[in-house]
Amino acid sequence: MTPLLEIRDLRIRLGDRALVDGVDISVNPGEIVGLAGESGSGKTLTALTALGFTPPGSAASGEVLFEGRNTLTLPKSQLRALRGDRVAMIFQDPMTSLHPMLTIERQLTEHQLAHRSLTRRQAREHAIELLERVRIPDPHRAIRSYPHRFSGGMRQRIAIASALACEPDLVVADEVTTALDVTVQAGILRLLDELCRDTGMAMLFITHDLAVMNVLTERLYVMREGRVVETGATREVLAAPTHEYTRALIEALPQTDTETA
């Protein structure tokens, strides 16, 4: 099987600092892959290159092949055609990733209208379906209101609905449960799992929380200081970590969580 996303020997330098230092990652169609590591390990930077984002002033080398096209060298217009359509992103904090002054409708339809030849009405109807799908109560009403009317968990559901709008092949989820309450986290994880299974989309799931990895992902990469230090099937890596850093991460988990893992 050709991978949907294949990152080969990715290096990102800012000045003389190597932020990402020779990373290889692949995600197959329909697969949920985890990218773990502490903050500053370069995991978010690596994942953002799937959408063609690199930090301003940095130099990136290597290849980031999404459906065979290198996002590092793709012209901006083609990159825009990919973003939001074939590859979507869910951000860490739903309090800041939704525009506070735009209606939910606008935020769920604008990329549909940019990428698809839909009427406003069709896009709106699809948006209502999406809200139903992520279990927002009373979607007809919800679509007319603004983000501040919703709780953090609900906002993250709306952000997920937005990512799903154009039925992407890949979703990059960056620490999407970190800013949420533990009880809300579980619901979001179940929802993501279910959505991936139903739609067949692949997901690159970034988190520092290995317990979450175990629930959701099939395969796992562990990053540290810009390098991948361990990779393999999530279950195996967590059961028998070979790298001491992975072992340290597992030991850092609360005891009850490692037992269920």
Binding site: R80, S97, H99, A114
Partner: peptide, 26 residues
């Protein structure tokens, strides 16, 4: 610098839309 601007870019919106529809509005 806000995340919602990055989110608008991640949706593949045209730069004009991002600047006038999202940045200026904010």
């Amino acid at each position: 610098g806000q995340e919602y601007v990055r989110a608008a870019e991640a949706k593949g919106l045209a730069p004009r839309t991002v600047v006038f529809g999202h940045v200026l509005r904010g």
